[in-house]
């Protein structure tokens, strides 16, 4: 399955919907989207990974790169993910300590609202 990307903004939080496989072939498209969003002033990003079938270290690199960009603007990049197969690579690499990971978009929005 190819990668499908969509995004919308709700109350200063930009939700990026990702569906499909994030690997060495498709990751550049996600990288371009995150860079574009930051360049347009979207500094609080929530990446919904619930429909992601596959994620490798290339994809992790793109997410870390996005986090670095938003932090330069005092922003945030957090994730929604409950899939064990995807969470496993975050645990292996220790990135569960770097990213805020929520069980649902609603849960992340509530946390974002509290932090504002």
């Amino acid at each position: 399955m190819d990668l499908k990307l969509d995004h919308h903004t709700e109350d200063r939080l930009t939700i990026v919907e990702v569906e499909g496989e994030i690997d060495v072939y498709t990751a550049p498209r996600l990288r371009e989207l995150l860079i574009d969003l930051v360049n347009k002033g979207n500094f609080h990003l929530l990446v919904n990974m619930e429909k992601v079938d596959f994620l490798d270290s290339t994809g992790l690199g793109v997410l870390v790169g996005g986090l670095k960009r938003v932090r330069a603007h005092d922003g945030s990049l957090e994730l929604v993910c409950t899939q064990e197969r995807i969470l496993k690579i975050f645990r292996i690499t220790g990135l569960t300590k770097v990213f805020g990971i929520y069980a649902s978009v609603e849960e992340a929005k509530e946390a974002h609202g509290r932090d504002k």
């Binding site: 490798d56 270290s57 290339t58 992790l60 690199g61 690579i89 292996i92 690499t93």
Partner: peptide, 14 residues
């Protein structure tokens, strides 16, 4: 050497 080191580290864990 992000790709080399990171990717091999992931393989070693899997």
């Amino acid at each position: 050497t992000l790709m080399s080191g990171f990717g091999i580290a992931v393989i070693a864990a899997l």
